[in-house]
Design a protein around this nucleic acid. Structure first.
Length: 273
DNA sequence: AACACTTTCAACCGCGGTATG
DNA sequence: TCATACCGCGGTTGAAAGTGT
Protein backbone atom coordinates (compact mmCIF):
# COMPACT_ATOMS: atom_id res chain seq x y z
CA UNK A 1 0.00 0.00 0.00
CA UNK A 2 1.72 3.17 -1.16
CA UNK A 3 0.79 6.81 -1.54
CA UNK A 4 -2.17 8.17 -3.36
CA UNK A 5 -1.57 8.93 -7.04
CA UNK A 6 -0.56 12.50 -7.87
CA UNK A 7 -3.41 13.10 -10.22
CA UNK A 8 -5.99 11.33 -12.29
CA UNK A 9 -4.44 11.20 -15.74
CA UNK A 10 -7.87 11.34 -17.31
CA UNK A 11 -9.05 14.85 -18.08
CA UNK A 12 -5.66 16.37 -17.41
CA UNK A 13 -4.88 19.17 -19.82
CA UNK A 14 -1.52 19.37 -21.57
CA UNK A 15 0.23 21.88 -23.80
CA UNK A 16 0.73 25.63 -23.52
CA UNK A 17 -0.76 27.41 -20.53
CA UNK A 18 -3.43 30.04 -21.05
CA UNK A 19 -3.43 33.43 -19.33
CA UNK A 20 -6.41 32.29 -17.29
CA UNK A 21 -4.61 29.19 -16.06
CA UNK A 22 -1.56 31.29 -15.18
CA UNK A 23 -3.75 33.68 -13.23
CA UNK A 24 -5.36 30.86 -11.28
CA UNK A 25 -2.03 29.30 -10.42
CA UNK A 26 -0.43 32.58 -9.38
CA UNK A 27 -3.46 33.57 -7.32
CA UNK A 28 -3.40 30.26 -5.55
CA UNK A 29 0.30 30.28 -4.73
CA UNK A 30 0.30 33.95 -3.72
CA UNK A 31 -2.59 33.42 -1.32
CA UNK A 32 -1.91 29.87 -0.13
CA UNK A 33 1.85 29.56 -0.62
CA UNK A 34 3.58 26.56 -2.14
CA UNK A 35 2.19 23.40 -0.58
CA UNK A 36 2.24 19.92 -2.00
CA UNK A 37 2.01 20.16 -5.76
CA UNK A 38 -0.32 17.18 -5.94
CA UNK A 39 -3.03 19.22 -4.32
CA UNK A 40 -2.44 22.43 -6.24
CA UNK A 41 -4.44 21.72 -9.43
CA UNK A 42 -7.55 20.71 -7.54
CA UNK A 43 -7.38 23.56 -5.04
CA UNK A 44 -6.52 26.13 -7.69
CA UNK A 45 -9.25 24.92 -10.03
CA UNK A 46 -6.91 23.76 -12.75
CA UNK A 47 -7.20 20.73 -14.99
CA UNK A 48 -3.47 20.18 -14.87
CA UNK A 49 -1.21 17.66 -13.25
CA UNK A 50 0.72 18.85 -10.20
CA UNK A 51 3.97 18.29 -11.97
CA UNK A 52 2.90 20.61 -14.77
CA UNK A 53 1.89 23.28 -12.22
CA UNK A 54 5.23 23.06 -10.47
CA UNK A 55 7.07 23.38 -13.78
CA UNK A 56 4.99 26.35 -14.88
CA UNK A 57 5.56 28.10 -11.57
CA UNK A 58 9.29 27.45 -11.24
CA UNK A 59 10.17 28.10 -14.87
CA UNK A 60 7.83 30.91 -15.79
CA UNK A 61 5.54 32.43 -13.16
CA UNK A 62 7.82 32.85 -10.16
CA UNK A 63 8.03 36.58 -9.39
CA UNK A 64 11.80 36.53 -8.79
CA UNK A 65 12.59 35.33 -12.30
CA UNK A 66 14.60 37.53 -14.61
CA UNK A 67 13.32 37.99 -18.13
CA UNK A 68 15.21 38.12 -21.38
CA UNK A 69 18.46 36.69 -22.62
CA UNK A 70 21.37 36.06 -20.31
CA UNK A 71 23.77 38.99 -20.20
CA UNK A 72 27.51 38.66 -20.89
CA UNK A 73 28.44 38.16 -17.25
CA UNK A 74 25.80 35.48 -16.78
CA UNK A 75 26.87 33.77 -19.98
CA UNK A 76 30.49 33.72 -18.91
CA UNK A 77 29.54 32.31 -15.54
CA UNK A 78 27.51 29.57 -17.22
CA UNK A 79 30.49 28.63 -19.40
CA UNK A 80 32.76 28.60 -16.41
CA UNK A 81 30.41 26.47 -14.34
CA UNK A 82 29.62 24.15 -17.23
CA UNK A 83 33.31 23.46 -17.71
CA UNK A 84 33.38 22.11 -14.18
CA UNK A 85 29.97 20.56 -13.84
CA UNK A 86 28.95 19.49 -17.33
CA UNK A 87 25.46 18.87 -18.66
CA UNK A 88 24.29 16.92 -15.65
CA UNK A 89 24.34 19.83 -13.24
CA UNK A 90 22.04 22.43 -14.78
CA UNK A 91 20.31 22.92 -11.47
CA UNK A 92 23.62 23.65 -9.73
CA UNK A 93 24.56 26.08 -12.48
CA UNK A 94 21.18 27.77 -12.16
CA UNK A 95 21.68 28.08 -8.41
CA UNK A 96 24.64 30.36 -9.11
CA UNK A 97 22.53 32.68 -11.27
CA UNK A 98 19.76 34.29 -9.25
CA UNK A 99 16.53 34.65 -11.19
CA UNK A 100 17.47 32.08 -13.80
CA UNK A 101 16.10 28.57 -14.07
CA UNK A 102 17.87 25.39 -15.00
CA UNK A 103 15.58 25.03 -17.99
CA UNK A 104 16.37 28.52 -19.20
CA UNK A 105 20.10 28.02 -18.84
CA UNK A 106 19.94 24.65 -20.53
CA UNK A 107 18.04 26.18 -23.45
CA UNK A 108 20.43 29.11 -23.68
CA UNK A 109 23.37 26.75 -23.64
CA UNK A 110 21.98 24.62 -26.43
CA UNK A 111 20.84 27.49 -28.64
CA UNK A 112 23.48 30.18 -28.09
CA UNK A 113 26.56 29.32 -26.09
CA UNK A 114 27.28 26.00 -27.73
CA UNK A 115 27.36 27.61 -31.17
CA UNK A 116 29.56 30.47 -30.00
CA UNK A 117 32.09 28.09 -28.47
CA UNK A 118 32.19 25.97 -31.61
CA UNK A 119 32.74 29.10 -33.68
CA UNK A 120 35.61 30.03 -31.39
CA UNK A 121 37.12 26.61 -31.93
CA UNK A 122 36.29 25.32 -28.46
CA UNK A 123 34.58 22.01 -27.91
CA UNK A 124 31.47 22.81 -25.84
CA UNK A 125 31.58 19.40 -24.20
CA UNK A 126 35.20 19.22 -23.12
CA UNK A 127 35.99 22.95 -23.21
CA UNK A 128 39.20 22.16 -24.99
CA UNK A 129 40.25 23.67 -28.30
CA UNK A 130 38.90 21.51 -31.10
CA UNK A 131 42.27 21.33 -32.89
CA UNK A 132 43.90 20.09 -29.68
CA UNK A 133 41.50 17.20 -29.64
CA UNK A 134 42.32 16.40 -33.23
CA UNK A 135 45.99 16.30 -32.23
CA UNK A 136 45.13 14.06 -29.33
CA UNK A 137 43.24 11.65 -31.51
CA UNK A 138 46.18 11.58 -33.91
CA UNK A 139 48.66 10.90 -31.13
CA UNK A 140 49.59 14.32 -29.73
CA UNK A 141 51.73 14.51 -26.62
CA UNK A 142 50.39 15.14 -23.15
CA UNK A 143 51.86 18.62 -22.98
CA UNK A 144 50.39 19.52 -26.34
CA UNK A 145 47.03 18.49 -25.04
CA UNK A 146 46.99 20.57 -21.87
CA UNK A 147 43.41 20.78 -20.75
CA UNK A 148 41.97 24.23 -20.94
CA UNK A 149 39.12 25.13 -18.74
CA UNK A 150 37.59 28.54 -19.15
CA UNK A 151 38.05 30.74 -16.15
CA UNK A 152 36.86 34.16 -15.13
CA UNK A 153 39.26 35.95 -17.41
CA UNK A 154 38.94 33.44 -20.21
CA UNK A 155 35.92 35.12 -21.60
CA UNK A 156 36.40 38.51 -20.07
CA UNK A 157 35.63 41.55 -22.13
CA UNK A 158 39.23 42.68 -22.17
CA UNK A 159 40.88 39.48 -23.22
CA UNK A 160 38.83 37.06 -25.17
CA UNK A 161 35.23 37.95 -25.06
CA UNK A 162 32.58 35.90 -26.71
CA UNK A 163 31.22 38.84 -28.58
CA UNK A 164 28.39 39.18 -30.98
CA UNK A 165 30.46 40.38 -33.90
CA UNK A 166 30.07 37.20 -35.83
CA UNK A 167 31.03 38.83 -39.12
CA UNK A 168 34.64 39.10 -38.03
CA UNK A 169 36.72 36.28 -39.50
CA UNK A 170 37.94 33.88 -36.85
CA UNK A 171 41.38 32.37 -36.76
CA UNK A 172 40.76 28.87 -38.10
CA UNK A 173 43.52 27.41 -35.89
CA UNK A 174 43.72 29.43 -32.70
CA UNK A 175 46.33 28.40 -30.18
CA UNK A 176 45.30 27.56 -26.65
CA UNK A 177 46.97 30.74 -25.47
CA UNK A 178 44.98 32.76 -27.99
CA UNK A 179 41.81 31.11 -26.83
CA UNK A 180 42.63 31.95 -23.25
CA UNK A 181 43.92 35.41 -24.06
CA UNK A 182 47.17 34.59 -22.30
CA UNK A 183 50.75 35.28 -23.35
CA UNK A 184 52.38 33.02 -25.89
CA UNK A 185 54.54 31.41 -23.22
CA UNK A 186 53.88 27.70 -22.73
CA UNK A 187 51.91 26.42 -19.79
CA UNK A 188 53.71 24.67 -17.01
CA UNK A 189 52.14 21.67 -15.43
CA UNK A 190 52.90 20.55 -11.92
CA UNK A 191 51.95 17.06 -10.85
CA UNK A 192 51.27 16.82 -7.17
CA UNK A 193 52.94 14.11 -5.11
CA UNK A 194 50.59 11.43 -3.90
CA UNK A 195 50.75 12.46 -0.27
CA UNK A 196 49.40 15.89 -1.15
CA UNK A 197 46.43 14.33 -2.88
CA UNK A 198 45.14 12.94 0.37
CA UNK A 199 42.34 15.46 0.50
CA UNK A 200 40.96 18.07 -1.82
CA UNK A 201 41.56 20.82 0.69
CA UNK A 202 45.20 20.10 1.09
CA UNK A 203 45.64 20.04 -2.69
CA UNK A 204 43.85 23.30 -3.10
CA UNK A 205 45.63 24.94 -0.22
CA UNK A 206 48.98 23.91 -1.59
CA UNK A 207 48.17 25.11 -5.08
CA UNK A 208 46.81 28.39 -3.82
CA UNK A 209 49.84 28.89 -1.65
CA UNK A 210 52.04 28.28 -4.65
CA UNK A 211 49.99 30.74 -6.64
CA UNK A 212 50.34 33.41 -4.03
CA UNK A 213 54.04 32.80 -3.90
CA UNK A 214 54.24 33.07 -7.67
CA UNK A 215 52.30 36.29 -7.83
CA UNK A 216 49.36 34.76 -9.62
CA UNK A 217 45.64 34.87 -9.29
CA UNK A 218 43.17 32.31 -10.55
CA UNK A 219 40.17 30.12 -9.98
CA UNK A 220 39.74 26.89 -8.10
CA UNK A 221 38.03 24.03 -9.87
CA UNK A 222 36.90 20.67 -8.67
CA UNK A 223 39.83 18.92 -10.28
CA UNK A 224 42.37 21.60 -10.99
CA UNK A 225 43.45 25.13 -10.37
CA UNK A 226 43.97 27.43 -13.29
CA UNK A 227 46.43 30.21 -12.64
CA UNK A 228 46.90 33.39 -14.56
CA UNK A 229 49.50 36.09 -14.11
CA UNK A 230 48.33 39.44 -12.87
CA UNK A 231 48.59 41.58 -16.01
CA UNK A 232 50.42 44.40 -14.30
CA UNK A 233 53.00 42.25 -12.61
CA UNK A 234 54.68 41.11 -15.77
CA UNK A 235 54.65 37.46 -14.74
CA UNK A 236 56.15 35.67 -17.73
CA UNK A 237 53.84 32.72 -18.25
CA UNK A 238 50.46 31.32 -17.42
CA UNK A 239 50.64 28.34 -15.11
CA UNK A 240 48.37 25.40 -14.76
CA UNK A 241 48.45 23.25 -11.69
CA UNK A 242 46.74 20.03 -12.49
CA UNK A 243 45.57 17.83 -9.67
CA UNK A 244 43.21 15.01 -8.99
CA UNK A 245 40.14 15.50 -6.92
CA UNK A 246 40.04 12.61 -4.51
CA UNK A 247 36.59 13.44 -3.23
CA UNK A 248 34.47 14.21 -6.28
CA UNK A 249 32.47 17.10 -7.58
CA UNK A 250 29.96 17.08 -4.76
CA UNK A 251 32.48 18.78 -2.53
CA UNK A 252 31.72 22.18 -3.95
CA UNK A 253 33.98 24.59 -5.67
CA UNK A 254 35.25 28.08 -5.40
CA UNK A 255 33.99 30.77 -7.69
CA UNK A 256 36.44 33.23 -9.13
CA UNK A 257 38.18 33.97 -5.87
CA UNK A 258 41.33 36.03 -5.82
CA UNK A 259 44.30 34.22 -4.47
CA UNK A 260 45.66 37.43 -3.06
CA UNK A 261 42.66 37.59 -0.76
CA UNK A 262 43.53 34.33 0.89
CA UNK A 263 45.55 34.35 4.03
CA UNK A 264 48.07 31.66 3.35
CA UNK A 265 51.64 31.26 4.32
CA UNK A 266 54.25 30.29 1.79
CA UNK A 267 55.75 27.57 3.92
CA UNK A 268 54.03 24.77 2.02
CA UNK A 269 55.61 25.76 -1.26
CA UNK A 270 58.29 23.18 -0.86
CA UNK A 271 55.71 20.40 -0.98
CA UNK A 272 55.14 20.71 -4.69
CA UNK A 273 58.69 21.05 -5.85
C1' DA B 1 3.42 37.49 -50.90
C1' DA B 2 4.25 32.77 -50.26
C1' DC B 3 6.72 29.12 -49.11
C1' DA B 4 10.62 26.53 -46.98
C1' DC B 5 13.85 26.26 -43.70
C1' DT B 6 15.90 27.44 -39.18
C1' DT B 7 15.82 28.91 -34.50
C1' DT B 8 13.89 29.43 -30.08
C1' DC B 9 12.12 27.98 -25.82
C1' DA B 10 8.02 26.36 -23.08
C1' DA B 11 6.48 22.14 -21.98
C1' DC B 12 6.61 17.28 -21.73
C1' DC B 13 8.78 12.71 -20.78
C1' DG B 14 11.08 9.48 -18.24
C1' DC B 15 14.40 8.40 -14.84
C1' DG B 16 16.54 8.18 -10.14
C1' DG B 17 16.35 9.29 -5.43
C1' DT B 18 13.38 10.00 -1.57
C1' DA B 19 9.17 9.81 1.17
C1' DT B 20 5.13 7.58 2.60
C1' DG B 21 1.78 4.12 4.02
C1' DT C 1 10.61 -4.26 4.33
C1' DC C 2 8.32 -3.41 0.30
C1' DA C 3 5.47 -1.20 -3.09
C1' DT C 4 4.24 2.91 -4.84
C1' DA C 5 3.79 7.95 -5.27
C1' DC C 6 6.25 12.37 -5.07
C1' DC C 7 9.77 15.40 -6.40
C1' DG C 8 13.40 17.26 -8.99
C1' DC C 9 16.28 16.73 -12.63
C1' DG C 10 18.26 16.38 -17.54
C1' DG C 11 17.02 15.22 -22.20
C1' DT C 12 13.94 15.87 -25.84
C1' DT C 13 10.06 17.56 -28.52
C1' DG C 14 7.25 20.43 -31.27
C1' DA C 15 4.66 24.73 -32.00
C1' DA C 16 5.53 29.42 -32.85
C1' DA C 17 8.41 32.95 -34.43
C1' DG C 18 12.02 34.44 -37.26
C1' DT C 19 14.72 34.45 -41.50
C1' DG C 20 15.95 33.49 -46.23
C1' DT C 21 14.73 32.84 -51.02
Amino acid sequence: MGRQPCCDKLGVKKGPWTADEDRKLVNFIVTQGQCCWRAVPKLAGLRRCGKSCRLRWTNYLRPDLKRGLLNDAEEQLVIQLHSRLGNRRWSKIAAELPGRTDNEIKNHWNTHIKKKLIKMGIDPVTHRPLDDQEKQSSGGTESENSALLPKGSHCSSENNSIDDDESRPLDPNPTSEQLLGWSSAPLDEVEFPNHIESTWNSCLTTAVTAAVGSGCRGDGYSDRVMLEPEPDWGWPAGLEFKMKDPIGDELGFLNGFSFSEMDLSLTELGEIS
